[in-house]
Simulated scan of single mutants.
Amino acid sequence: MLNVRKSNERGAASFGWLKSRHTFSFGHYYDPKHMGFGPLRVINEDNVAPGRGFDSHGHRDMEIISYVLDGALEHKDSMGNGSVLRYGDVQRMSAGSGVVHSEYNHSKTEGVHFLQIWIEPNTAGEAPGYEEKHFDAASKTGRLRLIASNDGREGSVSMRQDASIYAAILNGDDALTHQLAAGRQAYVHVIRGSITVNGVALNGGDALKVTEESQVSLEKADAAEVLVFDLPQ
């Protein structure tokens, strides 16, 4: 079964310094038909103005993954971590029993554009944790590169959920297939460009829920960058 989520159907928020699109219900945007997909709870596409950002705030029991698309994202947290993330960097923060962090646009002149992804953990009350790794464009070009998993395999960041996130950059004749095991489902989010997924044409910001299918097929790409989430049902 295939279910399309078009880019322009997402929730929207605009606060001057922040423009955001919400794939699932978040903040002031509420849609009972879009509360999440399996343990995948949030995909926010955020554009933050120069020198602005999210002041210190707390989280509990959530795996929070940031995927920077353009610009520089500055992170600080109550665990003592501090870094500046750029394109190719993937950050995982396990909120666990509680963590406080802030996120700012590191630049005073250019915007920062990133995805923030929340995945519900399979255990609660664990100690908070942090990890970041870099995946350059070459490592994602023409292939599905594992960037997050439950066990940190293949150099991915690890998270507390039986889920896997793959990133791919595809163009022209590139074609890939990802097999789905029994009891699994997939969510495909198109970051930019255009691509056909399981026969469905998608553009940047669009997404596809894939349930009761044996595979995810990616083809007919035009400067496409995508994320594929392999999730438990």
Rank of each mutant, 00 (worst) to 15 (best):
83 S>I: 12
85 L>S: 02
85 L>A: 01
85 L>G: 06
90 V>L: 10
92 R>Y: 11
93 M>C: 14
94 S>P: 10
96 G>F: 08
97 S>L: 14
98 G>M: 08
101 H>T: 03
102 S>P: 00
105 N>C: 04
106 H>W: 08
107 S>A: 01
107 S>W: 07
109 T>S: 15
110 E>T: 11
112 V>P: 07
112 V>Y: 08
113 H>N: 15
116 Q>R: 08
116 Q>A: 08
117 I>N: 08
117 I>E: 04
120 E>S: 15
120 E>Q: 15
121 P>E: 04
122 N>H: 15
123 T>C: 00
123 T>N: 08
124 A>V: 13
124 A>M: 15
126 E>M: 13
127 A>V: 13
127 A>M: 13
132 E>W: 07
133 K>P: 03
134 H>F: 13
135 F>D: 07
137 A>R: 12
138 A>G: 04
141 T>Y: 05
142 G>N: 05
143 R>K: 14
144 L>T: 00
146 L>G: 06
149 S>D: 09
151 D>T: 04
153 R>C: 10
153 R>F: 00
157 V>G: 07
158 S>V: 10
160 R>F: 09
161 Q>M: 09
163 A>F: 06
163 A>C: 08
165 I>N: 09
166 Y>Q: 03
167 A>M: 12
167 A>W: 01
167 A>F: 06
171 N>L: 00
172 G>F: 09
174 D>Y: 04
174 D>K: 02
174 D>W: 00
174 D>F: 00
176 L>S: 04
178 H>D: 11
178 H>F: 14
178 H>V: 12
179 Q>R: 15
183 G>C: 00
184 R>F: 04
185 Q>E: 03
186 A>M: 03
188 V>F: 02
189 H>R: 14
190 V>E: 06
193 G>L: 05
198 N>W: 08
198 N>R: 05
198 N>P: 01
198 N>T: 02
200 V>M: 14
200 V>H: 14
201 A>L: 06
202 L>F: 07
203 N>R: 14
204 G>E: 10
204 G>W: 03
205 G>F: 08
206 D>L: 05
207 A>K: 07
207 A>G: 15
208 L>Q: 11
211 T>R: 05
218 L>D: 01
